[in-house]
Amino acid sequence: MTLLFAIAVGVMFGSGAFLLLKPDLFRIVVGIVLVANAANLTLIASGLSRGVSPILPLDGETPSDPLVQAMTVTAIVIGLAVAALLLSLAYRVYTSHDTVDLDELSHAEARRESELEREEVEI
């Protein structure tokens, strides 16, 4: 079971990291979300134990570890907030620059900066 989790985490983190290297802003967001979920899965895998639900276990029953589940749900919430934040930031970039391509973005910024410099010289 641990091996399965390890493979799943590896694949998710790898695909996330691959997407992070793309110049497209939205692909980067998806990459971060994948990496976040790889981390969540690692959290679950860190305390893998089989048992009854941990609300008042009866004698002879071993409860499963509730701590990892509490941690994972917290991490998922943080991941959700982060995804929303990144999406809205990416959207802002898109609305103000009309592009989601990081290369084009840096070109546009360089162009604007040289224009500004030229204006300064003229003044």
Binding site: I32, V82, L86, L89, R92, H97
Partner: peptide
Amino acid sequence: TRHYGAAFIFAVVNLL
């Protein structure tokens, strides 16, 4: 507006 790009990269790198 030109600062959003930097903010995005800041967020992504630190989130990683």
